[in-house]
């Protein structure tokens, strides 16, 4: 049981490391949001499950934290993506932009 717990915790630490590396290496804001959100969500899940293997009586509380992260983290990153689109620091390597008919272009509408 302890070995399984440590395996899960190490996998969680690896995904946290991957999230930090993704934040550092990705070239523009939206790709950074993607890498950070996905890697840290799975890292938190596996780390908390590993802690739950080590202390089985903590499982309800850890499950509550997992459910909260599963709802809050995508909502927060989605709000951040919308805000950073609206604050008009768009990258120059986009191939397609459908959001322009919702928020308006740079020359009209919001600005």
């Amino acid at each position: 049981m302890e070995i399984a717990s440590y395996i899960f915790m190490t996998i969680g630490g690896l995904f946290y490391l991957l999230g930090g590396l993704g934040i550092l290496r990705m070239p523009d804001t939206f790709n950074r949001i993607q890498a950070g959100t996905k890697a840290t969500t799975l890292g938190a899940f596996t780390l908390l499950i590993g802690i739950g293997f080590n202390n089985p009586e903590w499982f309800p509380k850890l499950l509550l934290i997992i459910v909260f992260i599963a709802f809050a983290n995508p909502i927060g990153s989605s709000a951040l993506a919308k805000a950073s689109y609206k604050s008009c620091d768009l990258p120059d390597n986009l191939v397609q932009d459908d959001l322009i008919d919702l928020f308006g272009g740079k020359e009209d509408g919001l600005n």
Binding site: P27, D28, F30, N31, P91, N93, L94, V95, Q96, D97, D98, L99
Partner: peptide
């Protein structure tokens, strides 16, 4: 690996 964009 990147070819980013916004789709609907």
């Amino acid at each position: 690996h990147l070819n980013p964009g916004f789709v609907k």
